[in-house]
Amino acid sequence: MARSLSRGLLPLALPLAGLGAWFWATGPGMLPEYLLPSPPAVGRALCDYVLGGVPGAASSPYSGRFPTDLAASLSRVLGGFCLAVALGLPLGLASGRLPLLARLLSPAINGLRSVPGICWLPLALVWFGVGYRTTVFLIALAAFFPLFLNAAAGAAAVPAVQLRAGAMLGLSRLGLVRHVVLPASAGPVRSGLRIGLGLSFAYLVLGEMTGATEGLGAMIMDARLMGRVDLVVVGILLVSLAGWLADVLLVLLLRAAFKSCRRLP
């Protein structure tokens, strides 16, 4: 009992230590408020931003804006990530199984993936303008590569004996993909999805920092321009919380939908 309790609390150890260090660093005689606001100040800003109209919080145009920002950001993440999945997963699985396709795609993909996403920003702004479409493009681009590469590695590593067993059981080519290749690559594919989703949040903020009016990234950029460091910290905390929750949700969703994910060793 005591042991399971201490194991349950273990994940909280680092965040709590970080909070302690934060209190200490913002204590009397330490860092000034304009460099790093104290936890209570950030807490007030957080409540005001999320709930709105908190007494004692500096009055701001951000009061209670969180739901709108979150909805805008999530729709961008969802759009970009789904686009990346729709392209990266089938292409990756196919290139893992078809050496010719892999030879065709690998120079282009390995070249492009070393280009930092931020380099695409000017081009994306020219093509799509400020806002939803630019952000979706950047997210899809960033999430595509880990999805593609992991799916390809997973599909290429499917044991030959399992493919033979499937063919011997009478599965068609499509049946082999559905019943052997896909479940056998579940581990790497899941890793690719998780890395891709994580990157989606990073590029969300990048995309929104360039003049979008709504969204978590837009809020962080606005707050910086207005010297509201406490709100910048609030934005960072909320993006990391959203990213973490999205990851947990993704893993649960995969477990619910695919028995190969449920039964990963």
């Binding site: 399992q162 067993a165 063919a167 059981l169 049946g175 028995k259 039964r263």
Partner: peptide, 29 residues
């Protein structure tokens, strides 16, 4: 094809399928 069934030397069962599902996959096909 299933007219020439093979029992392999290595473990060729599908690790993500239960014992029953390993058997029924060929029947599903």
């Amino acid at each position: 094809g299933p007219d020439r069934a093979v029992v392999f030397q290595e473990d060729a069962l599908f690790p993500w399928l239960t014992a029953r599902e390993n058997i029924t996959l060929g029947l599903r096909a």
